[in-house]
Structure formats: C-alpha cells, structure tokens
Design a protein around this nucleic acid. Structure first.
Length: 806
RNA sequence: GCCCGGGUGGCGGAAUUGGUAGACGCGAGGGGCUUAAACCCCCUUGAGCCGCAACGGCUCGCGUGGGUUCGAAUCCCACCCCGGGCACCA
C-alpha cells in the first residue's frame, strides 16, 4: 500500500502557508530561536546539498516550534556575484532577468521540500532595497577609517579578470574558476579587518558551540605571532626594519633579505653594477604565479651589492633581494639566520653564505637548520640560555638601546572588497579632481547599478564604459567628477544579511537596532564547511563593527554553528560538470519530499560527507508506507485490561521520546530515525496480537508527533485523518515519563573471564548480590567454573556479572 | 613539515560514562502471495569451525603491533593508511 504523496504534500504545503504557521514577530513572552541556513546563490535548481541543508534547518524550525520557541526561520538570496554573471554570460540572458527567474524556480522547489520560512522577510542582495544598505555600510566604514583605498600587491585572476581577496585564493587558485592567481600592484578598496584581528582571535574562545575545526581554521587564518621588530643600518646610510619571532638567534644572522617590492630596493640598486641583474630579477618575480611562489623549493634571489650591520655584533652582512620574503608580511625584510631557519639555510647554501649555529642541536642531529630547543651558543651574552630566557634577554637589550621593540604580527590581511565586475553593488564613492575621493551622500543612495549590455569582463569594471554612470558632479564642489566603477565583493552582502531579516522592510535605515536586538545572535546557523574562513570570518568582523557602532547588541553573530558534510555520488561531489547529479525534483515526484527528507536525516552523521544511495530513499519510502498502513488500517481491538505487553510498548514509546529528543538536540538525526523505526515496528507487532485501542492510539500519537519535524506532510495528514485535532505543527513535543520509560526486565550478561557465557532475563531492580548468586547458579556458568577456583566476581547490576576464575 | 578529524560486515552506518560489537537501513540468498512479474509479507545474512539436531556450542573478529584492566571499538604508547586545514608568515 502506497500513499499518494503528491496530493498530500501539495495540500499541506498550501495549508501551512495559508495558515501562516511559520510567520513570526518579536514576542517577549516566548523564548526566541533564530534559525538560519546560509542563504543560497540562486542557481536556478536545488541540489542534494540544499536538500540536506534545508532538511536539517526545517527539522529544527519545526522541532523548536513544538518545543514552545518563537522560531524565526527566514530565507533569502545571495544573488550578486560571479556565478550569476558567468551563468548570464553563458546563457546570453542578462543577469537581472536570469537571477529573477532562478529565484522563482528555486523558491518553488524549496516549497516542494516542505521546508518552511517566514517569506515576508525574503531578501535578495541584487535588490536595490538591499544593496542600498551595503553602500550605506561601506560609507560608515569609510567614515570610521575602516574602508580605505590603497595601492598594494593584490591577487588577480586572469580568467575572471578581477582581483580577489586572500580568502578567495585556494592553494594559489581562484576560488571560483581554479585559474592560477597572479600578483598585481593595483589601487583597490580594502576593509580594515586587521584592526579587529585581536578581537576576532580572542572571541573564538567564546564560540563554544562551533565545530572545533572551524575555530582552528580561523585561528590559523588570523595567525598571531609574537616577536621583535628591530632596525638594521645599511652601510653608507639608510636603514630598514626586520621582524622576527626568534630574536634569540640574531647572532647567527649572516645576511639580510628584502622582498622584491621593498621600498628600499630602488635606492640600494640604483647605480650599482649589479643593477641590471637585480632589475631583471624583480621583474621576473612579479610574473611568478602564487602557485609557483608557494611551491617554495628553489630559493632564488640576487645580491644588491649593499651591506648591512648586525646591531648585536657589528658584523657586516650582505643584503639580498629574494621572493621568498613577502612584502605583505612583517616588514617585507628579514634577517637571514641559516642555522635556525630552514628557508634561510637553503638560501645560504645556494648562494654560498656563511652559516653560524646559535642553538646547540642534539648530538644525534644530522639535519640542516635546527629549529628545536637547545642552549644558545656563539652568542656572547646569550650563551647557555634556553630559548625563552634568550628571547627576553635579547629583547630587553634591543629595547634598551632603542634598536627594537616587541611586536605582534598577524597573518590576516585587510579584506580586499572591490571587484572589476558588473554584477555587484556599486561602490558609493566619487572622484573629484578638486576634492579628491568624496563619499556619495547618504541621501543619494542607492547608487543604482546601471543596465549594461556588455558585461563580459575585460580587466576593468564594465561600469567604466557607461558614461551616464561614470560622469557625475562632485557632491562637495558641484564640479564635474567621476564615479567609482568597481563593485563590492558579494561577501560584503553576506556579512550582514542576517541582521536585515529582522527588519527587512525598513526603508529609512539598514535596520532598527531594536529588531535584531530581539533575534540576535542566531541560535543556529547551518551551512557548508567551505565558508569556514570566508563568510564566517567576514560576518564576525562586520558584526563587531556594527556592535561598535551601537547597531548590534552582540559581538558574535552565530551562537551555534553547524557545518554539514557534502553529498558524494560515484566517488565524487555531486555536480553538473561531473554528470553525477540526482535531481531532488525527480525524487519529489517519485518518492515524495518526506521520503527524501527522511533519507537525508538517516543516511549518516550530518557532519560527515555522505555517499548518495538511491535504494536508501526506497527504504525510507517503504518505512513511510508501513506507517501509513499502520495508521489507516482498521484493527480488531480487544477490550482487555492492560498487561505486560501494553506496559512494554508504552515504555518503549517513552524511551524513544527520550532518545529522539536527545538525538535531535545533539544533531544525531541518523540515530533518531532508527529509534522511530524500531518503535513503529514494535507497534506493528503489537497490533497483530489482541491490541488495546487506547495503547495503539497513545503510541501512534507519539510516533506522529515525533515524525512531524522529519516527515511533516505524512505526519500531518495522518494526524488529521485520525482526528487528533489541531494543527500538528503547533502541538507540543511529547515528553518522556521516566516512570513509564523504566524497563522492568533487562538482560543480565554473565561473563567468565570476560567472555559472554550466559544471558539471563532479570528484574531491572536486581541487587549486586542477587545478580552474583543468580549468575553463579546458572547451569552454563557452572560448566565453566566447577573445575576452577573462583578468584573474583564483578557484579554490575542489572547488566553484567563477570566471574574471574583461574 | 605542522595542526585537526577518521579507519567497525558486501555497503551506509550503530554502540552517551570501558560492560552483549554489528542497532536501523541497503544489498544478497531462501520462502510466501501471484497465471506470471512488480509491489508487499516472512526467514537467513561478520568469518571459520563443531554438531543428527536445537530458538546449541567453540574460536577469531572494530587499520597494525604492544600495554593498562576482571573486562577495550572505547583509555595509553608506537606505527600504517585515508580525509581536511595551514604552510617560503620570518
């Protein structure tokens, strides 16, 4: 018997919507629960990753609603950005049209899943009513000195023809198209996330409900190092600073290296006989892709002809230029200590530079640079000291003489937010020949994205070709001026959209702070692990900025984070390009949304990657068919008094409530589902043997209540058919009565020397002594113990007795 | 190289604190229903062995090798393999 999922699912999707069951307002009388799945890019079709994500999210929305929470679950669209633009380029349809269409089809598909949202709060980042506030936020950051324009070496993707943030470069490749990224010196807009580095790092400790690996990834990404910055004098005048975490090894400095982009390089090489070679090297270094540069290996570099003096021992050391030193980290210059740094060792070996060890390696040491612990040597007043002591001693020494100072360096760089692409929010700035950079006045927002026919990237923003857009007047002097033509990184949109949900229709402000003050922080945020350092770091940063502005009541936006695993099929991630996609829409038709949802909950631990199995969905559908049959068959009821079989079934039902509740609370959906299957199977067995109507109804009611967040359509339909009354979605979640849940009889396992030799059904109340006596008198056990001396008996009632013989 | 995860049947995976390894589902085999097939239902299903048989028993088994313990998938040590993150960051 197979139920008509199409009719039932359409019916209830309609009903929940017309009854506005999941539309909410701030309500101080209930605990709130703000539940968000990361808003999707509107690709036009949902895939199994979305289904997994929204199934978890919707389960939580429904479960928490039944638990009495005021649950806000909104949905929106991350509709700006490269994917939309690239798709439009491929299809020839304008991104505006394409995006709107794709939002419509995806909305329909999400509804078919039965996943419920407060659609009144729907937002889309390409909507001027949204990106207007992106621009406002940009101006606020500008006012606060947190947005600035600067020329810097930046990541450039030759394929997408745009710059990328550091976070968007994965293993030297463009995050979007896997093209090797190159470095270019360009004038770009940055957000000063580094000013928040310490807070972003410190507050990771408060995110106790985040996965450890995400916290670790963010810590690594922010990358704090303590050290010393000190000045090195150049022979013949001039000086430069170097940063080191190992000032204790400074006596081992036998050379210095400047990054090819270091500002001092020019004056060092100008006029030198080594100048042509140096220039050649600098030019070549610029064209090295990040990929090659990261490969490390060959420590190339050139001598500048100049020398510097080691401040601690007055030794004269050569100054080199080498691309293994990065302009973007520290001071762009280093002291070369080959004895204690492997990279310096390789460089020194290659260029015939002296090596002096200043840390005594262990006797058995046969490696190159020694970075481990050991007594300091060859270092005058540091000799004999361990690392920590030597570091403080030399730091004091450098500080006393005004040569150096203690510093903290961060791996984190400022967030590059400008993009040379069309489909994004225009940066609201104006360049005036007279006044310089002038912000667009707030009253002129939004700066509308002009309609452009040709948005194929060609290395500068397509907006630069739109004369009507570019030419404007200066808000300060009213003279002719030009607009900024770059657009904002879409990660700017996603860094604050969850605030906007709280006050989505506000036309006067980005939001009234009182609204998010009720909802924030998110009680649950669900999405993919791929955002571990991108979106999740930017969102934390912007939240802290909003907090400092008095706009946010919280410093951290996401109290609980859940990162789901990928769906794989035939050994790799499901993707159109690999041709291994199983379309959820086909499964809505063939198996129904409920069966698909249940399969996603059942298939494995939510955090793990999971291999798709079509027959797995067959299995969950079969289960739902059995539940349908169980609930709709007219049984022959007995009017007998309740007996042990009734107590046992009711007890199991209460234990199942306990288990399912605990499992949902800790995101172990894959064990909650089997618990329900067991209960349902037991109920089926029960109805086949003189069932009492009250018992059946009581247990069935509990089954439907628990199924409601998992497979809402069938659960609601059966609830209605059974006439249990009310809308199931707003019924209270069942509670487990511990008295009824208690088991009367349990299996006592009897071991001899740790091996199971007998199993005895005993009362759950059995004492240790009784269990021991029962175990020792068992026929089977006596067969193992009669010829032996009993050394010890371990009795752990009511589950185990272990008899030790020998 | 450093830092996190993880390794359990043919497969996905269970096993809150050390206490019956393999729940539940898939697949497979057998049977029932059917003219037949599908659906559905029932039984079996870690490996090897003993036994006429039992809803009977033994041995082995959670990546490998040790250890702790009455007892280890679970704790400790060493190693192997897989996945992920970071990485010329001074």
């Amino acid at each position: 018997m197979s139920y008509d999922h199409k009719a039932i699912e359409a019916k209830w999707q309609e009903r929940w919507e017309t009854d506005r069951v999941f539309y909410v307002t701030e309500n101080a009388s209930k605990p709130k629960f703000y539940n968000v799945c990361m808003y999707p890019y509107p690709s036009g079709a949902i895939h199994q990753g979305h289904v997994r994500n929204y199934t978890y999210g919707d389960l939580l929305t429904r479960y928490k609603t039944m638990r009495g929470f005021n649950v806000l679950s909104p949905m929106g669209w991350d509709s700006f950005g490269l994917p939309a633009e690239n798709a439009a380029i491929d299809s020839g349809i304008h991104p505006m049209v394409n995006t709107e269409n794709q939002i419509l089809t995806m909305t329909a598909q999400i509804r078919q899943l039965g996943s419920m949202y407060d659609w009144d709060r729907e937002l889309a980042s390409h909507d001027p009513r949204f990106y207007r506030w992106d621009q406002w936020l940009f101006l606020e950051l500008y006012k606060r000195g947190l947005a600035y324009k600067a020329e810097a070496p930046v990541n450039w993707c030759p394929k997408d023809q745009t710059v990328l943030a550091n976070e968007q470069v994965i293993d030297g490749l463009c995050e979007r198209c896997d093209t090797p990224v190159i470095r270019r010196n360009l004038e770009q807009w940055f957000f000063k996330i580094t000013e928040y580095a310490d807070r972003l790092l410190e507050d990771i400790d408060t995110l106790e409900h985040w996965p450890d690996r995400v916290r670790t990834m963010q810590r690594n990404w922010i990358g704090r190092s303590e050290g010393v910055t000190f000045t090195i004098e150049v022979d013949g005048g001039g000086s430069f600073e170097v940063f080191t975490t190992r000032p204790d090894t400074v006596f081992g400095m036998t050379f210095c290296v400047l990054a090819p982009e270091h500002p001092l390089v020019e004056s060092l090489i100008a006029g030198s006989e080594l100048e042509p070679e140096a220039r050649k090297y600098i030019a070549a270094a610029q064209n090295v892709s990040e990929l090659e540069r990261m490969a490390g290996g060959d420590k190339t570099g050139v001598f500048t002809g100049a020398y510097a003096t080691n401040p601690v021992n007055e030794e004269r050391v050569p100054i080199y230029i080498a691309d293994y030193v990065l302009m973007g980290y520290g001071t762009g210059a280093i002291m070369g200590v080959p004895g204690q740094d492997q990279r310096d060792w390789e460089f020194a070996t290659k260029h015939g530079i002296d090596i002096i060890r200043t840390v005594q390696p262990p006797d058995e040491w046969d490696g190159e640079a020694y970075v481990g612990e050991g007594p300091t040597i060859n270092s005058e007043f540091l000799n004999g000291l361990g690392r920590t002591a030597a570091v403080s001693r030399i730091t004091e020494w450098l500080v006393e003489r005004g040569i150096g100072y203690a510093t903290v360096q961060w791996r984190l760089r400022d967030w590059l937010v400008s993009r040379q692409r069309y489909w994004g929010s225009p940066i609201p700035m104006i360049n005036c020949a007279e006044c310089g950079l002038v912000p667009v006045p707030e009253s002129d927002l939004p700066v509308l994205l002009p309609e452009v026919e040709d948005f194929v990237p060609k290395g500068r923003s397509p907006l630069a070709d739109v004369e009507d857009f570019v030419n404007t007047t200066c808000p300060q002097c009213a003279g002719p001026a030009t607009r900024e033509t770059d657009t904002l990184d879409t990660f700017v949109d996603s860094s604050w959209y969850y605030f906007r949900y709280a006050d989505v229709d506000n036309e006067d402000r980005i939001f009234d702070p009182a609204k998010p003050a009720y909802w924030m922080p998110l009680d649950q945020y669900i999405g993919g692990i791929e955002h571990a350092v991108l979106h999740l770091l930017y969102a934390r940063f912007i939240t802290k900025v909003l907090y400092d502005m008095g706009m946010s009541s919280v410093e951290e936006p996401f109290a609980r984070l859940f990162t789901q695993g990928m769906i794989t099929f035939k050994g790799s991630k499901m993707s159109k390009s690999k041709g291994n996609v199983v379309d959820p829409v086909d499964l809505f038709a063939s198996h129904g949304a409920d069966a698909l949802r249940l399969y996603h909950l059942f298939m494995g631990p939510p955090t793990d990657d999971a291999a798709w199995s079509g027959s797995g969905v067959d299995g969950t559908r079969r289960f739902l068919d059995r539940v349908w049959k169980l609930a709709t068959t007219v049984h022959e009821y007995s009017d007998r008094e309740p007996d042990a079989s009734d107590r046992e079934l009711i007890g199991l039902a209460h234990r199942t409530v306990r288990k399912v509740t605990e499992d949902i609370d800790r995101f172990h959906f894959n064990t909650a589902v089997p618990a329900l299957m067991v209960l349902s199977n037991e109920l089926s067995d029960y109805v086949s043997r003189a069932p009492r109507e009250e018992t059946v109804e009581e247990v069935l009611r509990m089954v439907l209540l628990m199924l409601s967040p998992m497979t809402p359509h069938i659960a609601h339909e059966l609830w209605e058919m059974k006439g249990y009354g009310g809308m199931l979605a707003t019924e209270s979640w069942p509670t487990s009565d511990e008295e009824l849940a208690r088991e009367e009889m349990v299996t006592l396992v009897v071991q001899v020397n740790g091996r199971v030799r007998d199993r005895i059904e005993v009362s759950a109340e059995i004492t240790a002594r009784e269990a021991e006596e029962l175990a020792l008198s068992s026929e089977k056990i006596r067969g193992w113990t009669d010829d032996e001396e009993i050394l010890k008996v371990i009795s752990r009632p009511p589950n185990l007795v272990n008899v030790v013989v020998g």
